[in-house]
Amino acid sequence: MQNLIMGLVLFVFTLSLYLFYFRKDKSKLSKTFKKSIKMFIQNSIRIFAIFVIIGLLEKFLSKEAVGNFLLKFSGLKGIILGDLVGAIMMGPIASGYPIAKYLFEHGAEVCVVSAFLLSWVMIGTISIPLEYKDLGKRFTITRNLLAFFSIIVLALIMEVLL
C-alpha cells in the first residue's frame, strides 16, 4: 500500500516535471524518452530478479527456522551471526519485526536482535551487484563493509543502553 502511494506521488511529480518542462522546449523530449524507457526495461529485469530471490527466500526460510537458528547463539558470536543472517535476508522489514519479536520472546539478547534488524535494513547481499553496477566498486565495498562492522558496534550500544 505504501509503495503504491509512494509510486503515485513520484509519478505525479515526474509527470508534472515533464509537462512543465517540455511544453516550452520540445527539442530534448524524444532523447529523454528513449533514454528513460531503455533504463526502465533494464531496471525491470534486474529488479525483478531480486524480487524472485526475495520471494523464494521468504517461502523457503520460515520465521521459526531463522529465529531458532539465531537463538542458538549469544554474545559476539550471536551479533556476527545476526549481522550475517540479516544481510542475507531481504524484502520488506515488516517481515523482519515478527522474527525480532519471536527472538525476544525466546530470550535472545538485545544485541543479537539489533544486529539482525540493522543488517536487514542496511545490507542487502542480493542487491550488491546492482549497487556495484550503478555506484561503482569503491562505493559498494566501502559502504557494505563499513555497515557490516558498524552494525556490531551499534548492536553493542543498544545492548548497553537498554
Partner: peptide, 16 residues
C-alpha cells in the same frame, strides 16, 4: 509506478 518514475526522473536529470 515507482520504477517508471525513477527511470523517467533519471532520464530527465541526465538530459535536462
Amino acid at each position: 509506478l515507482v520504477m517508471v518514475s525513477v527511470a523517467f526522473l533519471a532520464g530527465f536529470i541526465s538530459e535536462v
